[in-house]
């Protein structure tokens, strides 16, 4: 099973994303800030990261930069934001995100993204 890490300080959002991803058969883990996410990722890298921007301790940008700087396999990361702001999107890419979605991400959109980023052919 493919492992996905949801990094978000909002428990409600984590639960929402987890629900969508688990219903599609993914193995989901959660982290509520960048530091925790980094610890988990360094312990055993995930196949995909879904990362919020604004978080305590270490924000999403910081987490991605650290992640990308580590000498480990580099897996896709999607940044999710509440704003469709050009500056945020540029910053996300600059920090190492591979895509940028605006919350709330609807189920079909999230799953399309996840499947493609994981290289799964559509049935």
């Amino acid at each position: 099973m493919r492992r996905i890490l949801i990094v978000d300080d909002a428990a409600t959002v984590r639960m929402y994303h987890r629900g969508i991803l688990e219903s599609a058969g993914y193995l989901v883990e959660e982290a509520w800030n960048g530091i925790e996410a980094l610890e988990k990722a360094l312990e055993a890298p995930f196949d995909l990261y879904i990362v919020d921007i604004n978080m305590p301790k270490l924000d999403g940008y910081g987490f991605l930069r650290e992640l990308r700087q580590q000498q480990i396999a580099q897996q896709p990361a999607v940044m999710v934001s509440t704003e469709a702001a050009a500056g945020d999107e540029r910053m996300a890419y600059q920090s190492g995100a591979n895509s940028y979605l605006v919350k709330p991400v609807v189920q079909s959109q999230l799953l399309s993204h996840v499947r493609l980023l994981l290289g799964e052919a559509n049935q």
Binding site: L64, Q70, A73, Q74, P76, G96, L116, G119, A121
Partner: peptide, 20 residues
């Protein structure tokens, strides 16, 4: 400093997309 990692992630994504 994370440029290499960023590139590797892009390569991973591109490979996955073509696989998809």
């Amino acid at each position: 400093a994370w440029h290499a990692g960023r590139l590797k992630a892009i390569a991973e994504v591109l490979a996955n997309l073509s696989q998809a």
